[in-house]
Measured scan of single mutants.
Amino acid sequence: AVCQRCQARFSPAERIVNSNGELYHEHCFVCAQCFRPFPEGLFYEFEGRKYCEHDFQML
Protein backbone atom coordinates (compact mmCIF):
# COMPACT_ATOMS: atom_id res chain seq x y z
CA ALA A 1 0.00 0.00 0.00
CA VAL A 2 1.06 3.59 -0.60
CA CYS A 3 0.24 6.92 1.07
CA GLN A 4 -2.63 8.78 -0.59
CA ARG A 5 -0.76 12.12 -0.34
CA CYS A 6 2.92 11.38 -1.07
CA GLN A 7 2.54 8.05 -2.89
CA ALA A 8 5.42 6.50 -0.87
CA ARG A 9 5.17 3.01 0.63
CA PHE A 10 4.73 2.42 4.35
CA SER A 11 7.40 0.78 6.49
CA PRO A 12 6.25 -2.15 8.67
CA ALA A 13 6.76 -0.27 11.97
CA GLU A 14 5.11 2.96 10.81
CA ARG A 15 1.84 4.32 12.18
CA ILE A 16 -0.75 4.72 9.43
CA VAL A 17 -3.91 6.86 9.32
CA ASN A 18 -6.93 5.25 7.65
CA SER A 19 -9.54 7.78 6.53
CA ASN A 20 -12.50 6.08 4.83
CA GLY A 21 -10.19 3.49 3.30
CA GLU A 22 -7.57 6.04 2.19
CA LEU A 23 -4.19 5.41 3.85
CA TYR A 24 -1.77 8.16 4.92
CA HIS A 25 1.52 8.47 6.76
CA GLU A 26 0.79 10.18 10.06
CA HIS A 27 2.78 13.26 8.95
CA CYS A 28 0.97 13.37 5.56
CA PHE A 29 -2.54 13.50 7.06
CA VAL A 30 -2.78 17.30 7.18
CA CYS A 31 -4.99 20.18 6.02
CA ALA A 32 -4.90 20.78 2.26
CA GLN A 33 -4.57 24.54 2.85
CA CYS A 34 -2.33 25.15 5.89
CA PHE A 35 -0.61 21.72 5.97
CA ARG A 36 -1.06 21.42 9.75
CA PRO A 37 -2.24 18.21 11.45
CA PHE A 38 -5.94 18.05 12.29
CA PRO A 39 -6.72 18.91 15.92
CA GLU A 40 -8.02 15.72 17.58
CA GLY A 41 -8.36 14.16 14.12
CA LEU A 42 -11.29 16.45 13.21
CA PHE A 43 -11.40 17.51 9.56
CA TYR A 44 -13.85 18.60 6.87
CA GLU A 45 -13.86 17.34 3.31
CA PHE A 46 -14.65 19.43 0.23
CA GLU A 47 -14.16 18.30 -3.37
CA GLY A 48 -12.03 15.36 -2.21
CA ARG A 49 -9.62 17.49 -0.15
CA LYS A 50 -9.42 17.53 3.64
CA TYR A 51 -9.38 20.80 5.60
CA CYS A 52 -9.10 21.91 9.22
CA GLU A 53 -12.15 23.75 10.58
CA HIS A 54 -10.57 27.21 10.13
CA ASP A 55 -9.63 26.72 6.49
CA PHE A 56 -12.92 24.99 5.69
CA GLN A 57 -14.80 28.06 6.97
CA MET A 58 -12.71 30.25 4.62
CA LEU A 59 -13.82 28.35 1.48
Score class of each variant (00 low, 15 high):
R49A: 10
E47N: 04
A8V: 14
K50L: 12
Q7I: 06
C34Y: 00
C52S: 01
E53I: 08
H25N: 04
I16T: 14
E26A: 11
N18Y: 02
N18K: 03
C31M: 01
Q57R: 14
F29R: 08
R36V: 04
E14P: 02
A32C: 04
C3G: 03
S19K: 07
C6A: 01
C3Q: 00
E22Q: 15
H25V: 01
F10A: 04
S19P: 05
F35I: 12
F29T: 12
F56L: 10
F35Q: 12
S11E: 13
S11L: 11
D55E: 03
C28S: 01
R9T: 11
H54A: 14
C34N: 01
N18M: 05
S19L: 08
C6Q: 00
P39W: 07
F38W: 05
A13L: 11
F56V: 12
D55M: 00
Y44Q: 11
M58D: 09
M58I: 09
C3F: 00
R36E: 12
F46M: 06
G41W: 06
L42F: 05
S11V: 06
D55L: 00
L42Q: 09
E53K: 07
R15H: 08
V17T: 11
F35Y: 12
M58K: 13
E26M: 06
G41M: 05
H27N: 03
H25E: 01
V17C: 05
R15K: 15
F43L: 08
F10D: 00
F10K: 02
E53C: 04
C28D: 05
K50C: 08
F10R: 02
C34R: 02
Q4V: 06
E22K: 12
S19F: 06
E14C: 08
H27S: 06
F29C: 12
L23Q: 15
E14M: 03
C31V: 00
R5S: 15
G48L: 04
H25S: 00
Q4L: 15
A13K: 13
Y51W: 03
Q33V: 14
V17S: 08
E47Y: 03
R9N: 08
K50N: 15
A13N: 15
C6R: 02
Q57L: 04
F10Y: 04
S11M: 12
F56N: 13
L42S: 10
L23I: 14
P37K: 06
C28R: 01
Y51D: 03
P37Q: 04
E26Y: 09
R15G: 08
Q33C: 08
R15I: 11
C31Q: 00
H25W: 02
L42P: 04
C28A: 05
F46H: 14
F38Q: 02
V2E: 10
F35D: 15
F43S: 09
E26I: 10
